[in-house]
Design a protein around this nucleic acid. Structure first.
Lengths: 208, 208
DNA sequence: TCCGAAACTGACACGCGATTCCGTTCGAGT
DNA sequence: ACTCGAACGGAATCGCGTGTCAGTTTCGGA
């Protein structure tokens, strides 16, 4: 098994390394100058390689942005699912803790590097229809997850029985989205935003 | 006054008319095919005019998208401010009514024509930095408005005294954003979304 | 050290679309 | 009907960025 997973060494490893570096460099360029404004030559120049070399690793410009997005989406779905199953909690307090944990996790991804939300929310949707659909798919995925958490809470009785889980899930995800976007201009407000979000979510805004 | 507002007639009016038609056609094209994918020739062809004529009305491609966005932003800020002053209400019930009214107004704009949110949220931010900033400005403007509503409610005592008005405002606007984005794929869910949003906002999600 | 394959390079071909420009058309005033 | 200036159309210009390719370099193995 080890031999089949590592068919060759040395040069082969170098290739995978460069491939990764190209993806990272492309991410940098796309996030900084925007997808349409960066040329393949820019990406190659950043690595000090000839731009012809780029085409030995990726089909074309459109191809690589897909890989860049794959990477980011992977990171996010990882944060969303890692060590956080919907049915791992059984009380409101635990649920609150879990949502704080997930929120912190997302906050780290979005807040630490604003280029991530910028690329995902501001650049990607304008590339073409297919990419826009990918982003919408990501939203749907997130909505599905949140919805599952809510359903679980309704079943166990610590969330309102009449909760419209699907639409509420989308509303909550919208708040997260709002936080991510705010972090583009006010990265430092991250934590406060996150806290406000949870207050709205659990307590609403009305006076008691 | 009437004479100064109408310096000339006939031809002059035609010019303004065509100018408007170009803006509308550009909106159609940008929303359908995307900004980068549409050429000036496409816009001109849609109106059956030569593309050289376009340049008699607008400086360049970048120029017109600004006008298109002006138009949309105007419609939205209009809906947000029209007949809805933060201090026009004094009880939670009235506040609820007012927010429903504003929500319906926005829902009409976003829901009736998905091209509006598509252009504003998916196309515009990817055009260039300046345009992305404009969109962020729009978010900030909306946050400021919502914040004012919340502040007013806190002062009058029908909203939680410890409300973090600024960050809560952004969270709420995020939910609205989420609704607008959902409407891209599920325009029919508009109303339910809006209702779920308001429930979260006023009651939270926890069981009583 | 030498050989051949694989990787790299960057000049070049090419297509595309924004913008220009000038000959033509239109229309208001006489 | 005639003139003149403004508006129009679309062929031509121009620059740019993608993707290709043939020559060059690198490197592992004999």
């Amino acid at each position: 098994m080890t031999s089949s997973a590592e068919p060759v060494s040395r040069a082969e490893r170098r290739k995978q390394e460069l491939r990764r570096e190209i993806i990272d460099a492309a991410f940098d360029c796309f996030a900084e100058r925007g997808y349409h404004a960066t040329g393949i030559a820019d990406v190659a120049a950043r690595l000090g390689i000839g731009h012809g070399t780029f085409y030995r690793y990726f089909q074309n410009k459109r191809d690589i942005v897909d890989h860049v997005v794959d990477d980011l989406v992977g990171r996010i779905t990882g944060a969303l699912t890692a060590e956080n199953a919907p049915d791992a909690v059984s009380t409101l307090a635990e649920y609150r803790e879990q949502s704080a944990r997930i929120g912190e996790s997302l906050g780290r991804i979005f807040g630490e590097d604003p280029r991530v939300p910028r690329l995902l929310l501001f650049e990607a949707p304008g590339i073409d229809r297919a990419m826009a659909e990918r982003i919408l798919d990501l939203f749907d995925l997130a909505a599905g997850l949140t919805s599952a958490y809510l359903s679980h809470g309704v079943e166990l009785g610590y969330l309102r029985a009449d909760l419209d889980v699907d639409n509420t899930a989308r509303a909550i995800n919208g708040m997260i989205l709002g936080t991510a976007i705010s972090s583009l201009r006010m990265p430092e407000a991250q934590a406060a935003q996150s806290e406000a979000l949870r207050r709205v979510m659990y307590d609403g805004i009305a006076a008691t």
